[in-house]
Amino acid sequence: MADMDDTFQPRIMGFLCSWCSYSGADTAGVSRMQYPPNIRIIRVMCSGRIEPLHVMKAFEQGADGVLVSGCHPGDCHYATGNYYTQRRFAVMRQLLDFFGIDQRRLKLTWVSASEGARFADIVTAMTEEIRMVGPLNLRANPKGV
C-alpha cells in the first residue's frame, strides 16, 4: 500500500467474466502490472450473469464503486451474453443517477484476456475517479466492512 495517509480509499467491487476480463486481470497480475488494490474481484461465468441487483447489493454493503467487465462485443464465450449486459446497465446507470447515486460509480467495460495493461489502466482510472466522487455512504449505520 503506497499511501497510509488519510487519502480516501474507495472500495470498488469488480464483477469480471471468467473468459475475458478475469483472464485479463490475471494477465495483469502475471505480468506484474501495478494497479491500485482498491478493487475486490468476483469472478462470474459471463457478464450476462451479472444482474443489476448484484450491483445494488454491493452498494448496499458499502461499496463506493462497481466495475462490471466482460468480453468485447462479438467475443462473448456464450455468443450474446454481453449484449444483454450492455442494455441492462444502460438502464441501471440512468436509474442510479435518478436516485442521486453518481453514474460514475458504475462502470461497464470490455477487457479481453490479453489486455492486462488495459485492465490495470481501467482500475487505476476508476479508482482515481471514485476518489474524486467521494464515499457513497449509502449505509446509514456503517459497520465497517
Partner: peptide, 10 residues
C-alpha cells in the same frame, strides 16, 4: 435501513 429501502425502490 436506508440502504435496504433504496435498494428495494431502485
Amino acid at each position: 435501513d436506508r440502504e435496504s429501502v433504496f435498494s428495494f425502490h431502485l
